[in-house]
Nucleic acid binder design. Sequence first.
DNA 1: TTTGAAAGCGCGCAATGGAG
DNA 2: CTCCATTGCGCGCTTTCAAA
Length: 216
Amino acid sequence: MKQTIKTSRTAGYLEKMFRELNDHYFNSEIEEPIITIQSTPRAYGHVTVSKAWHKSNGDQRHELNIDAGTLDRPIEDVTATLLHEMVHLYHLQNNVKDCSRGGTYHNKRFKDTAEACDLHIEYDSRIGWSITFPTEALVDFIVTQGWEDIRMGRMDGYISGRPGRGTSAGTTEPPKPKKTSSTRKYICPHCKMSVRATREVNILCGDCLLRMEPVK
DNA sequence: TTTGAAAGCGCGCAATGGAG
DNA sequence: CTCCATTGCGCGCTTTCAAA
């Protein structure tokens, strides 16, 4: 299987996918964003609400980021994530509020548009209608387009871990490797009380009199 | 290595508002 | 009025940084 391994080539591949999805599901109405590949903790991707990018001719564009780790998943999952973010862009462009709680809770307007784009949406009480799966119809579209797995995950350690504070907004530069923390966490197996230690220790929970166990 | 503390995030809960 | 989706917000926990 052909595999795309360079970040720049992958971004180009995602742009190609974006254009074809935009044409197929949105009548090419979505303005092209800047597509980035960065590590985003706790999310497969995101879009910026404001137009964070300025081109030399004065145009401003949204940023559509796909999490670096996401790209090691099957192509239908990558496509579903890309489409999910495109639904947000479509709503942003049309002044449709599809999220609240600072972009975490996805409401039914999001669900409706996403389902019209061959996505299967499931509900979670914390993040609303945000859990995204590809449908058969979307998989068929992927097959028709001949898209293949990207597979540029983290097997080479190129992009991994959480970004530090103030990540370099909008670049595809690999984050510098983090110094490993010298602290470790211990948790009581019964009451779940946790403590921090800076070296390995044997410690009992004073409430339960049980040995607290280290967690990764 | 130890300690203190700031910042960020998630969870839970109560309030709100629209539909029936 | 009841039900349920949605929203706002505060508390507490985790992570991270920096100074000692």
